[in-house]
Amino acid sequence: MDTVASTAKMNNDEIFDLMKQFITEVIGEEFVEEMDITPESSFTKDLEMDSIEIVSFSEKIKAHFGDQIDFTGWLSSMDLDQLINLNLGMIINYIHECQ
């Protein structure tokens, strides 16, 4: 019954690869090469992304998924501690649920 939707739906590995690509575009390949990006990587501590880089990252998600995903809205519902602890796996899950 969900054949049409499922063709467009990405699995977690695909979302992870796409997120990695976005992160590379935002912070630059030379930095990413030195990092081991995993779903446990936290945005602020491990990836050392600052807020303007997270803005760029959010814009890429918006451009890719359109209205399907309110990524900025989701981020803005978090308090500072939650944002600091945000990791890639949480984002992958969120995107997966929204699809």
């Binding site: 303007i52 997270i54 760029s56 981020l75 944002l83």
Partner: peptide
Amino acid sequence: SNLSVYYFNIAPILAEHFHVVMYDLKSHGM
């Protein structure tokens, strides 16, 4: 600083009623 100071919380609140414009000052942000 840069426009991210507004982007995540303050701007979305204002955008419930207003068109919101943020910009990075010269040599700041992007």
